[in-house]
């Protein structure tokens, strides 16, 4: 049972208190996702506002094919993409990922994975689509099916993105730790 489905129905009927309740329930995770993608708190706040205004305008058109939260993240994802296009940053094609053959040293990755600064830096180094997949998997604990719905791509594409994103992330963490150790 979708915990937000009833509230969205109320929003579709113009209930502003229901809109406020949905905002309070989802504002933090949606903002965190947007901010992780734009890296600008003011711009992210504007996009968050636009997302909930679109929820207000479009609640009646929600078809219930996904969870309400997934639908809202999908709106946020499209707005972030639009924002990147405005900035002239379009980096959505990850069909040919940077390949790294050797496996990273998992022990080193484990140590670096506990350091927020390393993690923030390495997630920030990933390509657009890879970052989105990792953010939704690790910040929001989404299934690969939900991430596919948000990004509007097949599940197999998300598995491929996650596979490469994970590898690049772990290599980056290993590199950070090695450089730190030798510095």
């Amino acid at each position: 049972m979708d915990p937000h489905a009833q509230i969205l129905t109320q929003i579709a009927h113009g209930d502003k208190q229901a809109l406020a309740a949905l905002y309070r329930a989802l504002e933090k995770p949606v903002f965190r996702f947007i901010r992780s993608r734009l890296n600008d708190p003011f711009e992210s706040a504007d996009i968050l506002h636009d997302v909930f205004m679109e929820v207000w305008r479009s609640a009646g058109r929600f078809e219930g094919r996904s969870k309400v939260q997934t639908w809202i993240f999908g709106i946020a994802y499209r707005k972030v993409i639009d924002q990147h296009r405005k900035r002239g940053r379009v980096d959505l094609t990850d069909d040919i990922p940077e390949t790294i053959d050797e496996d990273p040293n998992a022990e080193m990755c484990l140590a670096a994975g506990q350091e927020a600064e390393h993690v923030r830096h390495c997630v920030g180094q990933l390509k657009e689509d890879h970052q989105t997949a990792i953010s939704l998997a690790f910040y929001e604990d989404m299934t690969y099916g939900e991430i596919a719905e948000v990004a509007g791509v097949p599940e197999g594409t998300i598995k491929t993105r996650i596979f490469h994103a994970k590898k690049l992330l772990l290599h980056c963490l290993q590199g950070r730790l090695q450089r730190g150790a030798t510095a």
Binding site: E27, K28, F31, R32, R35, P41, A45, L48, H49, A106, E107, C109, L110, G113, Q114, E115, A116, V119, R120, V123, S135, A137, F138, Y139, D141, K166, L169, L170, L173
Partner: peptide, 21 residues
Amino acid sequence: TELAALRAIRETMQSEDSYSP
């Protein structure tokens, strides 16, 4: 070990303080 590293990354990401409007 890779699973442990991924769990550590997830925990680190989720424990970051997050300002919101």
